[in-house]
Simulated assay, not measured.
Amino acid sequence: MNTADHILLVEDDPRLAEMLTEYLAQAAFRVTHAASGRTALNAMLAGDVDAVILDLMLPDMDGLEVCRQLRTSSDVPVLMLTARGDAIDRIIGLELGADDYLPKPFEPRELLARLRAILRRRNEHRHQPGLPPPGNAELLRFGRLEIDPAAHAARIAGQPCELTAYQFDLLLVLARHAGRVLSRDSLMELLKGEPLEAFDRSIDVHMSRIRAAVEDDPKKPRRIITVRGAGYLFAKVQD
Rank of each mutant, 00 (worst) to 15 (best):
residue 83 A to F: 05
residue 223 R to Y: 13
residue 105 P to Q: 11
residue 148 D to L: 11
residue 102 L to G: 07
residue 187 L to K: 00
residue 174 L to V: 13
residue 38 R to V: 12
residue 136 N to Q: 14
residue 228 R to T: 15
residue 171 L to V: 06
residue 100 D to S: 09
residue 43 A to S: 15
residue 63 G to W: 03
residue 44 M to T: 00
residue 66 V to L: 08
residue 128 Q to N: 06
residue 70 L to R: 07
residue 114 R to D: 03
residue 201 R to A: 13
residue 206 H to E: 01
residue 97 G to T: 04
residue 165 A to Y: 04
residue 80 M to L: 15
residue 215 E to V: 10
residue 60 D to L: 06
residue 26 Q to R: 11
residue 30 R to P: 00
residue 34 A to F: 01
residue 17 A to V: 06
residue 160 P to R: 12
residue 140 L to Q: 11
residue 26 Q to H: 07
residue 51 A to H: 02
residue 43 A to Q: 06
residue 115 L to R: 00
residue 182 L to Q: 05
residue 76 V to A: 12
residue 155 R to P: 02
residue 157 A to M: 10
residue 40 A to P: 02
residue 171 L to W: 03
residue 164 T to V: 15
residue 238 Q to S: 14
residue 134 P to W: 01
residue 207 M to Q: 03
residue 180 R to E: 14
residue 80 M to C: 01
residue 231 G to A: 02
residue 28 A to H: 15
residue 183 S to H: 04
residue 80 M to W: 05
residue 174 L to R: 08
residue 141 R to S: 11
residue 213 A to H: 02
residue 185 D to E: 15
residue 131 L to C: 14
residue 75 D to Y: 09
residue 211 R to A: 09
residue 88 I to M: 13
residue 102 L to N: 06
residue 233 L to A: 07
residue 55 D to F: 01
residue 237 V to Q: 13
residue 137 A to R: 07
residue 55 D to L: 06
residue 36 S to V: 00
residue 40 A to R: 01
residue 140 L to R: 07
residue 206 H to C: 13
residue 123 N to V: 00
residue 217 D to C: 15
residue 66 V to M: 09
residue 177 H to C: 08
residue 64 L to M: 09
residue 19 M to N: 08
residue 110 E to F: 02
residue 56 L to P: 00
residue 142 F to T: 14
residue 60 D to S: 09
residue 136 N to W: 07
residue 158 G to D: 14
residue 97 G to Q: 00
residue 155 R to C: 08
residue 61 M to K: 07
residue 51 A to I: 00
residue 52 V to H: 03
residue 179 G to H: 12
residue 202 S to H: 13
residue 217 D to A: 11
residue 99 D to L: 11
residue 77 P to H: 10
residue 131 L to V: 14
residue 214 V to R: 03
residue 22 E to T: 07
residue 171 L to T: 02
residue 106 F to S: 08
residue 105 P to H: 11
residue 167 Q to D: 04
residue 199 F to T: 01
residue 13 D to W: 01
residue 24 L to D: 05
residue 88 I to D: 15
residue 102 L to W: 14
residue 107 E to D: 15
residue 119 L to K: 00
residue 37 G to I: 03
residue 238 Q to H: 12
residue 113 A to P: 00
residue 98 A to R: 03
residue 90 R to A: 09
residue 218 P to K: 15
residue 196 L to W: 06
residue 106 F to K: 04
residue 188 M to W: 03
residue 160 P to C: 10
residue 238 Q to W: 06
residue 102 L to R: 07
residue 9 L to C: 05
residue 23 Y to S: 12
residue 60 D to E: 10
residue 166 Y to T: 10
residue 116 R to D: 06
residue 106 F to E: 03
residue 181 V to D: 13
residue 61 M to Q: 12
residue 167 Q to I: 05
residue 191 L to D: 08
residue 165 A to L: 10
residue 145 L to F: 15
residue 81 L to K: 00
residue 89 D to R: 04
residue 120 R to T: 09
residue 92 I to R: 08
residue 78 V to S: 01
residue 172 L to C: 05
residue 47 G to L: 05
residue 43 A to I: 02
residue 79 L to W: 00
residue 135 G to I: 08
residue 163 L to W: 01
residue 111 L to P: 03
residue 22 E to A: 08
residue 178 A to G: 10
residue 156 I to C: 11
residue 183 S to F: 08
residue 113 A to G: 08
